[in-house]
């Protein structure tokens, strides 16, 4: 068994493996598959049922289970949801491993996976990964009026 506590290094190595075999396009294809298969019953369902609050409901569970260091804000009146990730547990784990290099574009999967679900539902997805080398990022999701 690969424990769920070991998944992040396995995920990062899978990205590298796919890129080595078939280039970045295969990595993107995999991210789209994860988005379609995993997020359809979680994030997509949450947002379809509860609107912008669905983002709050989805990430309340996942970020707490992942023991992330974050601030989440829900502004239902303005149709906005934000995550300020002070320390991403996944990227942090990869950086702390030391003896393994994280996949070069590791953080990009968060852009592809969530954008693919949210934009067709009528939301703008803004992902700032400018500090991802320090395991920090910002996500803003806004209902398009």
């Amino acid at each position: 068994m690969i424990s769920c506590t070991e998944f992040i290094p396995a995920y990062s190595e899978l990205f590298k493996y796919l890129e080595q075999r078939d280039g970045k396009k295969k990595v993107l294809e995999f991210w789209e598959t994860i988005s379609d298969e995993y997020l359809k019953d979680s994030l997509k369902k949450c947002v379809e049922e509860a609107g912008i609050r669905g983002c709050w409901n989805y990430w309340s569970r996942s970020l707490n289970e992942e023991a992330a260091d974050f601030t989440m804000t829900l502004d239902e009146e303005n149709g906005e949801f934000t995550i300020v990730m002070h320390a991403c547990p996944s990227k942090g784990m990869l950086l702390n491993l030391g003896y393994m290099e994280p996949y070069r574009d590791y953080c990009e999967h968060c852009d592809v996976l969530y954008r693919r679900v949210l934009e067709p539902l009528g939301y703008e997805y803004i992902f700032d990964d400018s500090e991802c080398d320090q395991a920090k990022c910002n996500i803003k999701i806004r209902k398009i009026k």
Binding site: I8, E66, A67, T71, T73
Partner: peptide, 26 residues
């Protein structure tokens, strides 16, 4: 009113079992 949730790593245990599903998709 806005709702805000602030958590640090030590507030929670690291156990996200849905990663098993992601591994399976991989």
């Amino acid at each position: 009113a806005k709702e805000i949730m602030r958590r640090t790593a030590s507030d929670n245990e690291y156990l996200h079992k849905d990663f098993h599903a992601s591994m399976n998709i991989g």
